[in-house]
Amino acid sequence: MSSTRGGRWTAWAFLAPVTVYLLACYAYPLYRNVELSLRRYTVRSFVSGGAPFAGLDNYRDVVTHPTFGPALAHTAVFTAVSLLCQFTLGLALAVFFHRHFPLSRTLRALFLVPWLLPLIVSASTWSWLLNSEAGVVNAALGALGLDPVNWLTSPRWSLVSVIVANIWIGIPFNLVVLHSGLQAIPTDVYEAAALDGASGSQRFWRITFPLLRPVSAITLLLGLIYTLKVFDIIWIMTRGGPTDSSTTFATWSYRLGFGSLLPEFGPGAAVGNLLIVVALIGGLSYVRAQRRQRW
């Protein structure tokens, strides 16, 4: 039925709406964004049009800007540390929840809560937890006899704080995906290993970890794409500050375009486009690795 010529063309009747939608709501905004980055826009020309073509000037300005180095470093650290911690903690919890025990299902479901909350809710909750004077984290440090930390207002700690909040949000996703990956591993493999006298850690490193590789790879890829995009948490907790100490490409781009009274759309779009290149390289290298593995 699907091979008939008629069928193949009716298919496009069903696909027409989504195709038009992709052109209008993805391709066109992306095109406008590239165009923004190649012209020298002012607020007036942004509204009325007619901004002069500037070639790659915006990109040159952005790359030589003093914020570029820190933003690049913070994006890399934020992404790498978040991914590593989310994945490790998520995997540990997935292994823990893999053995059924009373309430395991309910507790696992509760773990999803942080992931489902609106990011602005999580971010403002963490802001108050980490508040210098009234936050419960500093109160706990005080109870242990430690000095309070200016989590959000000192350049030394702001990046750490937003990373901690982001890890907290990312753990549930890693837990759920890795848990379902674990369930796909046939139990007789473990039974055979147990008969051969394999210890718990041997079973994990020799069986679980290798067999979980495909699921781990996709979890990390989705994590990478998601983490590169993270904007809400950082912007709400620190606005990228103090003095760029938690600025990433995403918050920098937003600040240039929308964060001040004098928007710089050209450079903002240029930063955004650099970000998309990184995300695409990550995504496509995964797709390629995946294909090579299959054939």
Binding site: L22, Y26, Y28, P29, L30, Y31, R32, N33, L36, F46, I225, L228, K229, F231, A250, S253, Y254, G257, F258, F265, G268, A269, G272, N273, L275, I276, A279, L280, G282, G283
Partner: peptide, 16 residues
């Protein structure tokens, strides 16, 4: 399409 960061979409949509 799922890999495109929201900030880029936001800027494009804003211009449009």
């Amino acid at each position: 399409a799922q890999m495109v960061p929201g900030i880029i979409m936001a800027m494009g949509f804003y211009a449009i």
